[in-house]
């Protein structure tokens, strides 16, 4: 199976506000799929539907189908679903605990044996390219790390649970350019093993890292396709306007 995520006719509402309109989208395995669009276009809402994060919001409702690896997420327990789908947020949000605890927390609540934790912490930090920077101070408070390090810690934390898909919700928008480029490199490394969906404001970033790109506008998916095609020869006028900076 090459399809990691498949949505059919996905609609979403915050109360009466229609936030997503008839989204049909396919995310392929081991690819980076970027979602771009102006603020309020529904791109964050969309990826938060995928791991049912929006369930936590009062008055939120969806219609339509979301299949993850062919399985409807409505039939999946959100807790089990989120274990399979990791998420990294806009602002680095480490727990106010030690670096070690940040990584070990996820595996621990999923019942992983204490003896395995050390190796999980190490491998997760290595995968997130943070190990060398923090290996000597695993017991320091995570809040003392720099913003970019914190964000990589959050990535490591997500990896530690053993997800198959990772959602990035504007992961670099709170970071300086150097930290941002490290995260971008990391994402490219990660796609070997994981399927990645990234929401971004930054079109250069989408162009650099992603394989396919979707353009959202006012809750609708205007265009979806190969990243090169979208950025070189967009089919839709509004996509072109957005990419060339005429609005947004």
């Amino acid at each position: 199976m090459t399809e990691a995520i498949h949505t059919t006719n996905l609609n979403a509402w915050y109360g009466k506000t229609h936030a997503l309109k008839n989204i049909d989208m396919t995310v392929e395995n081991n690819k980076i799929t970027a979602i771009i669009g102006p603020s309020g276009c529904g791109k964050s809402t969309f990826i938060r539907c995928l791991n049912r994060m929006n369930d936590l919001i009062d008055g939120f409702s969806t219609e339509g189908e979301i299949l993850i690896r062919g399985k409807d997420i409505k039939d999946t327990d959100p807790v089990a679903l989120r274990k399979k789908i990791g998420m990294v947020f806009q602002k680095p949000n480490p727990f106010p605990k030690s670096i070690y605890e940040n990584i070990a927390y996820g595996p621990r609540i999923h019942g992983i044996n204490k003896r395995e934790l050390d190796s999980i912490v190490e491998s997760s930090l290595k995968k997130a390219a943070l190990w060398n920077e923090v290996k000597d101070r695993l017991n320091d408070n995570a809040m003392e790390l720099s913003g970019g390090q914190q964000q990589r810690l959050c990535i490591a934390r997500a990896l530690a649970v053993g997800p198959e898909i990772i959602l990035f919700d504007e992961p670099c928008s709170a970071l300086d350019p150097i930290s941002a480029s490290k995260i971008e490199d990391l994402m490219i490394d990660l796609k070997e093993k994981y399927t990645i969906v990234i929401v971004t404001h930054n079109m250069q970033q989408a162009a650099r890292v992603s394989d396919s790109t979707a353009f959202f506008l006012m809750g609708e998916m205007i265009e979806f396709g190969d990243t090169k095609q979208i950025f070189k020869k967009p089919r839709e006028k509004s996509t072109e306007d957005y990419i060339t900076g005429r609005f947004g």
Partner: peptide
């Protein structure tokens, strides 16, 4: 912080 926790399952 809540989001971080929920996102880990």
């Amino acid at each position: 912080i809540r989001e971080a926790s929920y996102a880990l399952g």
